[in-house]
Every structure is written in C-alpha cells, then in structure tokens.
C-alpha cells in the first residue's frame, strides 16, 4: 500500500473542511430562501420548518469550527493553508449568521401568515434573488479557487442597496398614508434590512476567498460604485 504523505493528508482534510463550508452555505441559503418564500406566500408551516432547521445550521457551524482547530493543531499550517483555515473559521461565522437571518425572517413570516399584507411583496423577493445569486457565486468561487469570480460578488451588493432603498421609500409612503400600517411596514423594513445585512456577510465570504487565493486583503468597496457623501447617512441610521 502506498504510504499517505503528510501533504496528501493535509489536502484531504482541507477538502473536507471546504465541503463543510459549502454544505453550511447551502443550508444558510435554503434557510433564508424558504423564509422569504414563507413570507411571500403566507405559509406558516414553512416558516416553522425554517425555524426548526436553525439548530442544524448552528451544529454544523460548530463542527466546522472544531474541525478547523483540529486541522490547525495537526498540521500547523503555513502560507495558503494557514490563510484557508483561518478564513474558513471566519466564513463559518458569516454563513451561520445568514442562517440566523433566515430564522429571523421566518418569525416575521409566521406572524404575518394570517394577516392581510399591506402590499404584494415584489422587491423583497427580488432582494432574495440577488442575495442567492451572490451566495452561489461566492461559494462557487471558493469551490473552484476563482478569485476573479469572487470579485464579481462585490458589485452585486450595490443592487441590494438599491432595492433596500426602494423598499424603504415605498413603505414610508404607505405608512404616511395610513399610520395603522406602521407595525407591518416596520416588520417588512426589518426584513429588507436583514437581507441587506446578508449581502454584507456574503461580501465578507468573497473577500476571504480572495485572501486565501492571493494573500491580499481586498476591500469590497473598491469594486463598488462610489458613494456620494449624502448616502453615507445610511450608516448613521444604522448606528442609531
């Protein structure tokens, strides 16, 4: 029998870590997709299923974290291997957070399932489409070691911001018309904000992919359209 070299063993273990990241990404994406689907179709049962899956995502994220520590202890990795294992630990946090967001949206979906919606949901599902596309791209870039593909994720985050602003304007109008709508409109606003945050986490994942592959730290903002100072008000709003 051919002896297994340390390098081969390391690569096999790293491939397993990678597989776990992809699985975690898939679960997080499913969680958030199903939650939006449940919200749009007022499907309380589906919302409850999403919530029930939350623990599985947490468990996988924890297992991934442990596997990374074992990997580091076993191989004392350097260079690209070191960048990979530390980045994977960060990615696990980002992806798990996206999974949590699915849970948060599912709670809103469950609450609104038996209420009349103040408007048909169009742009929120659009945000989900963009987010899903961002996630697929970031994870495919990770899977296929493609730094250029990872960079494509950054510009997509601009679309998320545009859609979120559009939703905000629309819901503000609806609230001004009839203050009774404020409660539900606020919930929907939170959903849009949550999706936008999800986009930020996917951006982090894409940044990490580039770091693993090139050793360079990139800022997503360098790939996004320049923001006029007036738009930075959004950040202030967040901090409040």
């Amino acid at each position: 029998m051919e002896p297994v070299s340390t390098r081969k063993q390391l690569e096999a273990d790293l491939t397993e870590l990678k597989r776990m990241v992809l699985r975690l990404g898939k679960m997080a994406e499913e969680s958030i997709s199903k939650a939006i689907w449940a919200l749009k179709n007022q499907d309380a049962e589906l919302a409850r299923m999403v919530l029930a899956k939350d623990d599985d995502i947490d468990d996988l994220a924890e297992a991934l974290d442990n596997a990374c520590m074992h990997f580091a202890a076993r191989f004392q990795p350097l260079g690209e291997d070191l960048r990979a294992v530390t980045s994977i630990m960060h990615m696990a946090v980002d992806l798990e957070r996206i999974g949590d967001y699915g849970g948060n949206i599912a709670k809103v979906a469950a609450e609104l399932a038996d209420k009349e919606l103040i408007k048909p949901l169009i742009d929120i599902p659009r945000m989900l489409d963009v987010l899903s596309a961002m996630m697929s791209k970031a994870l495919a870039a990770f899977d296929t070691n493609n730094a250029e593909m990872a960079k494509e994720v950054f510009a997509m985050d601009d679309m998320m911001d545009d859609l979120e602003k559009q939703i905000m304007r629309e819901l503000l109008l609806l609230m001004m018309e009839r203050p009774q709508r404020i409660e539900q409109a606020t919930q929907l606003l939170n959903v849009a904000r949550t999706l936008e945050r999800g986009g930020d986490h996917v951006t982090n994942v894409a940044e990490r992919v580039i770091y693993i592959l090139t050793g360079k730290t990139v800022k997503a903002s360098a790939f996004r359209r320049p923001r006029p100072a007036a738009l930075n008000g959004r950040k202030e709003h967040e901090e409040r």
């Binding site: 340390t6 390098r7 390391l10 350097l78 260079g79 690209e80 291997d81 070191l82 050793g215």
Partner: peptide, 17 residues
C-alpha cells in the same frame, strides 16, 4: 513570509508541496 509570501515557490515550500 509564513502567511502571505509573494513568491509562488515560497508558498509551495512552506506549505510542504
């Protein structure tokens, strides 16, 4: 050198390739 070397040969050496 041990996290992000510039040269591919350094990277290959420190990762045991």
């Amino acid at each position: 050198m041990f996290t992000s070397p510039e040269d591919k040969r350094t990277e290959d050496y420190i990762t045991g390739r």
